[in-house]
Amino acid sequence: MMNSMNNVEFLNELVNSKFNVVKTEIINAEQMSFIVDSRDVHTLLTLLKTSGWKQLSYLSAIDWIKEDEFELVYIVFNWDRPVHIQVRTRIKRDRENASFETIIPIYPGAKYYEREVHEFFGIKFPGNPDFHKQLILENWDDMPPLLKDFDPRAYSDSHFEKRDYPEKHINLNNQESKQEKRQKRNLKSLLLRNGGKK
């Protein structure tokens, strides 16, 4: 049996010997992250899959609006060597044409993750036959909602009726506040719980 530190060392060795990794991060004994160039992602994922990281746990994206980039995060998992690996890469943030080659040939399950990313960030995945289909949002009629320049409040205000609170709800019939009484009662019950002392 190998312990988990060995796993991390093994991975470090495996990936860094073959790839030009921009940054390797060892988060803890069960998590590692590799930032790679976008051209290396497919070969790196192939290598990881053949080395036992055969489960794609998640594909997510991050919108770095100031740097004008999207970051894609592939998380893969191995059931024999318990290490989650994040493969991170950055692509150009292009609202209309941002795209990244699909990884379906490597991980077929990526089909749905890529659809989700397309829905929420507008990144296209050529090679995935239905990346453009809706998956989670139904009949969405605006820009992808997880982009940083999307304004959820404006969308909510324009689509969903808000409840009005007429002033009388705030101070009903000019009653005086019962806050003090309530506090006294709470104090008393506290005292009783302590045996009435102090």
């Binding site: 909602p145 909510s156 205000d157 009726e161 808000k162 409840r163």
Partner: peptide, 19 residues
């Protein structure tokens, strides 16, 4: 369900069920 609660400004959820 009453007024949206902590999600009152979310793009995904409705604010007022009795609507």
């Amino acid at each position: 369900t009453i007024n949206g609660g902590i999600y009152h400004d979310s793009h995904a959820v409705i604010n007022k069920l009795d609507q």
